[in-house]
């Protein structure tokens, strides 16, 4: 029998009390237990960024973050961005700029972009590229993603 631990997770402003297996990643728990399937699993080894969620506001690859580490932390996933049926500005910008094709990388990049916007900082084009470099997109060729991120940062 494997060891279980009780943790409190606050996901998109809702508190969940869970018993998690200590072997589980935060990604496992978000997808399989809580069904936040907007969190994608690409590589499972921190390389692709598809599983990116915000933990206390910080973009983190949830595939290489243990669920037990998340005890007491505030987690935000793509599911939490829309308010009253209305997409967030960042989400809308990704649509308007045509930055989504298959959409697999999108939730992760949108979460990273949301953190950049909320940081209130200004970013040069080079810095924008650096800040989204932890996301692989196999479809768009990145230019439209860059445009959507830039638009989101200018939009504030």
């Amino acid at each position: 029998m494997n060891e279980m631990k009780k943790i409190n997770l606050i996901v998109n402003d809702k508190t969940y009390q869970l018993e998690v297996d200590i072997r589980e990643s935060l990604l496992d728990v978000l997808r399989n237990r809580l069904h936040f399937t907007g969190v994608k699993e690409g590589c499972s080894v921190g390389e692709c960024g598809a599983c990116t969620v915000l933990i206390d506001g910080v973009p983190t690859s949830s595939c290489i973050y243990l669920a037990v580490f998340a005890d007491g932390k505030k987690i935000r996933t793509i599911e939490g961005l829309e308010k009253d049926g209305k997409l967030s500005k960042v989400q809308q910008n990704f649509i308007d700029e045509g930055a989504i094709q298959c959409g697999f990388c999108t939730p992760g990049i949108v979460m990273t972009t949301t953190a950049l916007v909320e940081s209130g900082n200004k970013f040069t084009d080079e810095e924008i590229k650096r800040e989204i470099s932890g996301h692989f997109c196999r479809c768009t060729g990145y230019q439209k993603i860059f445009d959507a991120v830039k638009k989101s940062l200018d939009d504030k």
Binding site: G46, G49, T52, S61, Y65, T112, G134
Partner: peptide
């Protein structure tokens, strides 16, 4: 420091 990994890696 900023040369290592990508943002999500550097954050952790």
């Amino acid at each position: 420091s900023v040369s290592m990994g990508g943002p999500q890696i550097r954050n952790n």
